[in-house]
Amino acid sequence: MEEDDRKRRMALISIVLRSRHQIILKTGTEWEIMLNWSEATFARHLRISKHQFEYLLTKLQENGLHTDHTQGRTPVPDTKKVLIFLWYMANQNSFREISDKFDVSQSAAHGIIHQVLTIMSGIGNTFISWPNACEKAASAAAFHRVCGLDGVIGAIDGCHIRVQRPPIRGGDYMNRKAYYSVLLQGIVDDRARFIDIFAGPLGRVHDARMLRSSTFFTQWQKMGERCLLGDSAYIGHAFPFIKTPRRDNGALTVEDLRHNSKISQGRVIVENAFGRMKCKWRCLRDLQNTRIDIVVMIIMSACFLHNMCIAASAVCPEHRLAAQGRTITMSRLIFTVEKLLNIFTLTMHSLSVVIDVYLLYSVCTNDNVLPKLNASPFSSPQYGFEQLNIYFP
């Protein structure tokens, strides 16, 4: 009897293996359990809180996420669609893994993610907007406390998003770091919240050229008397609204070094914003898509989600200690540099006083020193010490 049952099972297995239809085993039939996770577990896997999840679900439903069921298979619930979208954004899973995780086909997973991305791209003004007068004043005060510069309401920089080589003009996406990428230009306020973004340029494009191609460049007059902080890529007369560091040509003064230090202290916030976004929404670390329109929608959606989360969690929980360590180290470094600059200034001032006293003493005690005052080898401007117009025997 047992031998017959074993033979029947083996025969059924052989029939299944010889079948032309693909047999897919789904393990994610109990996806509803995600909604019963604790707050910490939910945020660790989906990168947002339950309250933010409900807010995002409501916004998407208001803009056309829901689908009416007329005939055929039961459609995927809206809650499940948002869970699939967030799982895709927060991880580096393939569509095969997502289809197994949520018990849907690969084509359905792709269609759901594309549907949500399309809706997200249409409601960008809900998450990113240019600050009003009160917000500008608050940002200017915050940047003044951080770096000591007046009139600054934000920081601007570019970021590379790694992609697969596109089929059209693929070589143009190779950047100077020798990998294919799409550029993202971001302007952030004092809270590292995006107030303007521009995504899609080729990876080989320079940051200055990307800024000239953006819509913000044609509307920068809306800043009024305010300005932004930028790195050396934006040095030039074409960007009068950006404060940039002075080029290090080997002749920077103490004041120039202090100015560059202030620029760096304020500008680092935009680099931190890019780092936090890539840490939280990990699909940006290596996008496997080759369609640039979808890549741009993914980047924009990540920026929208970043702004939605920035008020509740400014630092990724997994990297909070590392961020605090870097902040403490940078603060100590800045304090040390400023202290050394102050010591150098005091030393030069003391040296000048000593030389003045020596000159006065020499004039009073030795009249022969007077004819030598204009015959000094230090009188050349190349030394930068024109006050040492005396030859020391």
Rank of each mutant, 00 (worst) to 15 (best):
Val82Trp: 00
Ala178Cys: 09
Thr336Phe: 03
Gly325Ala: 15
Val337Thr: 00
Gly151Tyr: 09
Phe378Ile: 03
Gln382Thr: 12
Arg212Asn: 07
Arg145Asn: 14
Val16Gly: 01
Thr41Gln: 13
Gln265Val: 07
Arg73Ser: 02
Glu2Arg: 05
His69Gln: 10
Glu39Gln: 14
Asn93Pro: 00
Ala311Glu: 07
Leu86Gln: 05
Glu3Asp: 10
Asn374Tyr: 09
Arg169Ile: 08
Val315Thr: 15
Lys278Cys: 12
Lys26Tyr: 04
Arg145Gly: 11
Lys101Leu: 04
Arg326Ser: 11
Gly148Ser: 11
Gln164Ala: 14
Leu359Glu: 08
Ala90Gly: 14
Phe344Asn: 05
Ile123Gln: 01
Met120Tyr: 02
Asp78Ile: 06
Val104His: 01
Ser107Asp: 03
Ala108Arg: 04
Gly170Phe: 10
Leu83Ala: 08
Gly250Thr: 10
Leu252Cys: 13
Tyr361Thr: 13
Leu321Lys: 12
Ile269Gly: 01
Gly266His: 00
Ile168Tyr: 13
Met330Ala: 12
Tyr88Val: 01
Asn368Ala: 11
Glu97Phe: 01
Asp189Arg: 02
Ile269Met: 11
Arg145Pro: 01
Asn307Gln: 10
Met1Ala: 07
Phe274Met: 11
Pro167Ser: 14
His206Leu: 12
Pro377Val: 13
Glu30Val: 09
Ile156Trp: 05
Thr74Lys: 12
Thr290Cys: 12
Arg47Cys: 13
Gly236Asp: 03
Val116Gln: 02
Leu117Lys: 02
Lys26Gln: 03
Gln106Ile: 07
Ala311Thr: 07
Lys262Pro: 09
Lys243Cys: 15
Gly200Pro: 10
Cys279Gln: 14
Ala375Lys: 13
Ile197Trp: 03
